[in-house]
């Protein structure tokens, strides 16, 4: 019974990790690609780790909690690396499907100036 449950968890984990990697291929620009590995993999790795904790606790008849640490470090580091990658991409001005923020700022600035001119 437990083995079925563990197998289900491993399958779920594998599927989500796969979808996360698939996102790298299917999505079109750097900024959207970064969503795949940061999100879809957290649940994937999460369920793999729960399966691992259950399996080794069951096998060795003692509680195995190393997996909690892996989860903790993963949740701390994954967003930070994603943030740094995005920041670097923005700095280099990689091409994006969405309007880049500098252009937005310029546009707002121009609009404000236009309003100002009209006011005069």
């Amino acid at each position: 019974m437990l083995e079925v449950f563990i197998s289900l968890l491993i399958l779920t984990g594998a599927i989500f990790t796969f979808i996360g990697s698939l996102g790298l291929v299917r999505l079109k620009d750097f900024y959207t690609r970064i969503h795949g590995p940061t999100k879809a993999t957290t649940l994937g790795v999460g369920s793999l780790l729960i399966a691992s904790a259950l399996y080794f606790s069951y096998l060795e008849r003692s509680i195995s909690l190393h997996e909690v640490l892996v989860t903790l470090f993963l949740f701390i580091t994954a967003p930070v690396s994603a943030h740094m990658l995005t920041k670097a991409a923005l700095h280099l001005g990689l091409q994006s499907l969405a309007r880049l923020p500098e252009q937005q700022v310029n546009r707002q600035h121009n609009e404000q100036e236009a309003k100002h001119d009209q006011g005069d």
Partner: peptide, 26 residues
């Protein structure tokens, strides 16, 4: 929310990536 996010992103990846509307928000 993380669990929800995984399903949302999985659906978007498997759906039609051409129709996505990405945006930067300040």
């Amino acid at each position: 929310d993380i669990i929800q996010a995984n399903f949302t992103v999985a659906r978007l990846v498997l759906g039609r990536p051409d129709r996505l509307q990405p945006a930067f928000i300040s």
